[in-house]
């Protein structure tokens, strides 16, 4: 009996291991993502794209909502007018809500008294994308953390895992709450999550994101973080910038100058 059991365990484990070996050979995309050795040498590779944004709070005017309104209009973001069911891709929130761990507790009002635009950080290592059970939230080739609304089941794993609260859920039917419908972008439906997409539909047409374009003060700079000659890289080189909750290791692509 004992011998038999040992033999059984031996054989099944060999079979199991062999199965894994064979399947990793047969199904090339099974479990393992395609790798590129050059990706490990340096995070920023010339010739590839990683879209990023720099928000210069020295220029941002308190009380101005132009970027928020432009975003709402560009993407048909509903406005329910209540905090519980609110949906926002881009919003302006008090400094301490955006940077709760920045260590600026005693800084003066001119630095921390303003409300700061916050949006999806399009992290290089996005926790939402790995939490999503259907890969509806995924990292695109150009660094944008995109959402495929067609396969979102509305499980809200991404909301739970996002440390920035950048993802909203459609608790109600969104269409009635959209003030002015923009007919070149779809709406969402009840039961899916939504968030900022870095205006990927505008990038496709060679345009800048709606918020960047709408800002009269040029507060927002958008560009390719992997291109050393881009405007955003030059600004990042010259200024002291910060990211939201960098201690979590999500590597946000949105930077701030305070």
């Amino acid at each position: 009996m004992n011998e038999e059991r040992r033999e059984f365990i031996k054989k099944t484990s060999i079979g199991f291991l062999a199965g894994i070996g064979v399947s990793s050979g047969l199904f090339l995309n099974f479990l393992l993502e395609k790798t590129d050795a050059s990706l490990w040498s340096d995070k920023n590779i010339a010739g590839t794209t990683r879209w990023g944004m720099l928000i210069d709070m020295r220029k941002c005017i308190d009380g101005c909502q132009k970027c928020v309104d432009a975003c709402r209009l560009a993407h048909n973001v509903p406005d329910f007018g209540n905090a519980t069911h609110q949906i926002a891709w881009l919003q302006k929130s008090p400094y301490r809500e955006v940077f709760p761990t920045s260590g600026e507790d005693f800084a003066g009002k001119e630095r921390t008294g303003k409300s700061v635009p916050s949006l999806c950080n399009h992290c290089a290592d996005p926790p939402c994308a790995s939490a999503c059970p259907t890969q509806a939230t995924f990292k695109r080739f150009d660094g944008i953390v995109a959402l495929d609304y067609h396969r979102c089941t509305g499980c809200r794993s991404c909301m739970a895992s996002c440390p920035y609260g950048a993802i909203s859920f459609n608790w109600k039917e969104p269409r009635p709450a959209i003030k002015a419908i923009n007919d070149i972008y779809p709406t969402r439906e009840m039961g899916v999550v939504e968030k900022c997409n870095f205006c990927s539909e505008r990038l496709l047409k060679g345009k800048l994101p709606a918020c960047v374009e709408s800002c009269p003060e040029k507060t927002l700079t958008f560009g390719n973080l992997n291109d050393p000659k881009s405007e955003i890289r030059l600004l990042l080189e010259k200024n002291q910038t910060m990211q939201r909750k960098p201690e979590l290791g999500t590597l946000p692509s949105v930077f701030y100058i305070i």
Partner: peptide
Amino acid sequence: RYATPFSPYS
């Protein structure tokens, strides 16, 4: 259908 080994929910 879209199960992924990276998602604990999956």
